[in-house]
């Protein structure tokens, strides 16, 4: 669809994608030069602009479909991406914000790209029956939980990178910018726990929605919940090393990511 004829929600989403993309480029260039600080302001500004445009896009899309835009796969991908960006700003102070942004922004670009890759993916859809607030809350909580799992995945990648740099004695630009591995291990733990709590709340709500939220969607959500509850227990009981846990958090996200296709 040419940009000129694109509905404003999608146009804003394109702009948001470009803003996230703009955040990745200078950070990568700065890292290559070994002068990280130069990219810092641009990175944060790009993430803020991307998030603002993303929020506006979701708002307009909600107006367009007359409900919370979470009923098609492209909409779900955008909503999860928005939740990731939101959590990124919430946990940014734990990390160096711009650095987490460098790892988060590409994920957001990929998710937006996937959302756009479905032909006619952003067509309006009719409101089926009455809008039930609890159903909307159930879905929203589940998607924010998925965003927490996505950030656990990003943090896991950061941990694995820093761990490798330390083991191989590769003390250079990225080493000085990445947070301590102990802090990253704790951040993975917090993100996984947060996701499990949110998904538990979402699934808890489903008990109140007899017949409305049921079937394969719910079964898959329970599957994801079981996987991450298991990861939480493994972390809590120190059964696996932090490196193995980081691998689990990084690779584990493949399951909820694929499940988004299955539930839609």
């Amino acid at each position: 669809m040419p940009v000129s004829t694109m509905p404003s929600a999608q146009f804003l989403l394109v702009l948001s994608t470009l803003a996230f993309l703009a955040g990745v480029a200078p950070a990568l260039a700065a890292l290559r030069r070994g002068r990280w600080r130069r990219g810092r302001g641009v990175q944060l500004a790009a993430m803020l602009a991307g998030f603002a445009l993303q929020t506006a896009s979701i708002y307009l899309r909600g107006q367009q479909v007359g409900q919370c835009p979470m009923k098609s796969l492209p909409d779900i991908l955008v909503f999860v991406a928005w939740s990731i960006a939101l959590l990124y700003f919430l946990v940014g102070s734990t990390f160096r914000v711009s650095l987490l942004g460098m790892f988060t922004a590409p994920l957001l670009v990929v998710m937006h790209g996937l959302a756009f890759s479905f032909p006619g993916g952003f067509r309006p859809y009719p409101v089926k029956g009455q809008i039930i607030a609890l159903v909307e809350l159930h879905a929203a909580l589940a998607l924010v939980a998925y965003a927490a799992f996505a950030l656990a995945c990003v943090t896991g990648v950061m941990y694995l990178l820093q761990e490798r740099l330390l083991k191989k004695h590769l003390i250079g630009g990225l080493f000085y910018e990445l947070p301590p591995i102990q802090g990253l291990a704790r951040a993975i733990q917090r993100m996984v726990m947060l996701g499990v709590v949110l998904l538990s709340a979402s699934l808890g709500i489903s008990f109140k929605l007899e017949g409305v939220a049921a079937g394969p969607k719910l079964a898959i959500a329970w599957g994801v919940w079981a996987l991450y509850t298991l990861i939480s227990i493994v972390i809590w009981r120190h059964t696996l090393s932090p490196r193995q846990t980081a691998w689990l958090a990084a690779l584990g996200f493949v399951i909820p990511f694929i499940s988004l296709w299955l539930v839609t």
Binding site: Q162, L166, I171, F175, Y176, L178, P180, I181, Q182, G183
Partner: peptide
């Protein structure tokens, strides 16, 4: 880091609080 002492500090800081 430009000295052995400061390298030790940098390494410790990137592992622990």
């Amino acid at each position: 880091s430009t000295s052995v002492g400061s390298v030790a500090v940098d390494l410790a800081e990137k592992i622990h609080d």
